[in-house]
Design a protein around this nucleic acid. Sequence first.
DNA 1: ATTACTGTAATAATATCAGTTACAGTTATT
DNA 2: AATAACTGTAACTGATATTATTACAGTAAT
Lengths: 141, 141
Amino acid sequence: MNSEFIIAVHSLVFLAHRPDGMASSEEIATNVCTNPVRVRKVMSCLRKHGFVDTREGSGGGYRLSREPGDVTLADVYRTLAAGSLAPNWCSGDPQSDCLVGSNMGEVMNAVFCGADQQLERYFESITIGQMLSRVAAMARA
Amino acid sequence: MNSEFIIAVHSLVFLAHRPDGMASSEEIATNVCTNPVRVRKVMSCLRKHGFVDTREGSGGGYRLSREPGDVTLADVYRTLAAGSLAPNWCSGDPQSDCLVGSNMGEVMNAVFCGADQQLERYFESITIGQMLSRVAAMARA
DNA sequence: ATTACTGTAATAATATCAGTTACAGTTATT
DNA sequence: AATAACTGTAACTGATATTATTACAGTAAT
């Protein structure tokens, strides 16, 4: 799975966990275990899609702009990783004079579109709020 | 998605399409659009899991050893690409003293295990025989 | 024997992904 | 107004993963 998706989810959960809902790219990067530039790139995308607000300048950072319980992983998936199942590579060749060789690419594509939808449906059932609860439950155990 | 999975599915459909159910690695490679060594590697794996029989030596090649209608994509998936959704990379760090940072890896893992199961369930509903029908339907259209 | 295959390892080429550096723009603080 | 602490991006570098190629031993048909 696309690691930007993971960074995004982790970041959102981290923000949801913060009492004031805020953190800088560096704080997030440390928590996620990656570098701040990558976090900023992902967050920049999340901002454009209305998941977070940004405050530039000193004391700035990111803040959740939606209720954790209202944001599903599917929302994030669609924003950052939609179609990630579809192979970058298509087998076969439309020019082939073989029935299979010439049409497999398209059939395979349809299969993966279906798979992607299936995956989205699953992610639809999990919210950022739930992720936070799960993390907390883990800590108690 | 794992391109070996795609090669495997394409190859099996191609074999199913052959009147005698047989083809050499070179024929398959041409049809799939890749090189014979790769095909042999994938087929070797399929053989070990009982999907095909191999005949070495002159005039040899591969032959489907199960009914196309009985082989699901899930069978192939489990053999060649199971767990492909789970990220190779885990966010966070168990040593972190933050609730989120220390437990997110495990929670994320559980999420992806679920996603993988969801995907398998979907693949369960598609057989090699159906793939062949779809390809044929496409050619008629 | 020769030819046409598979099986597999090793290597080389290529593409993808992640980390780093650099710097312009923004805002709070003093 | 100067400084410090941020975000936003682009460009570059390095690491990693993927794919193709080469090579050769083993097997079976002719």
